[in-house]
């Protein structure tokens, strides 16, 4: 059909814009960002991450209080007041859930249909969604990491090690960066899981297993095996990315590679699932 054989030549079939690939990608990202901002689940999950931060900080405050009342011998045995352990895993889970919902909420409500009709190139859609999930993960991760590490530094004050993991507050900065990278990674991996599993419930269970349950059960393994497994688990990448004192095996560069491999595997799985399977 051409515009000339119609009765309304000015509208029907005329002047179809042929934008550049970069422009199309930018618009797809902007649309995905809008989608994320216009559902209440996003804010509910951010509130959950905020609540988890408060709970974790309360636990740290109690530990500090206990430290103050402990004997010198007891003090030598206390755990470090480190938000990497007390706060960030749950924050990563809730923020990661936002990443998962970028796909699963659309499969769950059927809005994947209009989404794919608007952006039918599936890899482009995946790239746009992954960009948004990672950006949301990075922003929220940075926010909650900054908040929890700042509060932890204030709570610990000038108390000594082992309660205080940082000789100076500036030593917490690499930890904030490491924690932010971990939340970003978790969010991107969760998006990939969501694209493969499609169901919100299944994806959140898998995500919970990956970032909360498996790290806990890894402790039950024999020491040598535990360290090898624990060193590549996403939550444990935070201290390894920051360098400094930790029991794990990877250098900061090695940890960065591990994070990249997690994201590549998850998004690779998502690509295959989206390419091969029928939508809706």
């Amino acid at each position: 059909m051409t515009a000339t054989d119609t009765t309304t030549t000015d509208t029907v079939g005329s002047a179809i814009p042929s934008p550049s690939r970069a422009r199309v990608f930018r618009d797809a990202v902007a649309a995905e960002w809008l989608k994320l901002r216009t559902v209440r689940t996003t804010y509910a999950l951010l509130a959950c991450a905020g609540a988890a931060t408060l709970v974790g900080l309360t636990v740290l405050a109690l530990a500090v209080q206990e430290f103050d009342h402990a004997t010198a011998a007891e003090r030598a045995d206390v755990e470090a007041a480190d938000p990497t352990v007390a706060v960030m895993p749950l924050v990563a889970f809730f923020v990661g859930s936002i990443g998962a919902m970028v796909f699963t909420s659309e499969f769950g409500t059927g809005s994947i249909g209009p989404g794919l009709l608007a952006v039918p190139r599936r890899r482009l859609l995946l790239a746009a969604k992954a960009t948004v999930a990672a950006a949301a993960g990075a922003l929220a991760g940075l926010l909650f990491a900054l908040l929890s590490f700042a509060c932890a530094v204030l709570l610990v004050g000038n108390r000594p090690a082992p309660l205080n993991p940082w000789p100076a507050w500036t030593d917490a900065i690499p930890m904030v960066a490491g924690a932010t990278v971990v939340v970003t990674t978790t969010s991107a991996v969760a998006l990939g899981l969501g694209a493969v599993l499609r169901s919100t419930a299944a994806t959140l269970v898998a995500l919970g297993a990956l970032v909360l349950v498996v790290p806990m059960f890894a402790h039950a393994l024999p020491a040598a095996l535990h360290l090898r497994l624990a060193s590549i688990l996403i939550p444990n990448l935070a201290p390894q990315l920051a360098g400094g004192d930790h029991p794990y095996l990877l250098s900061p560069a090695g940890a960065a590679v591990a994070a990249a491999v997690w994201v590549l595997v998850a998004l690779g799985g998502a690509t295959v699932a989206l390419d091969r399977r029928d939508a809706t």
């Binding site: 814009p17 649309a31 409500t109 009709l117 608007a118 190139r121």
Partner: peptide, 29 residues
Amino acid sequence: RRPMHEVGAVLDADAAHPGRTAAQHLVCL
């Protein structure tokens, strides 16, 4: 690349996220 300028389709009446307003749903698309 920009299919909505060429083709409009309605497949399923329940295909909008129930938590978005009508305007938000359309603005996203």
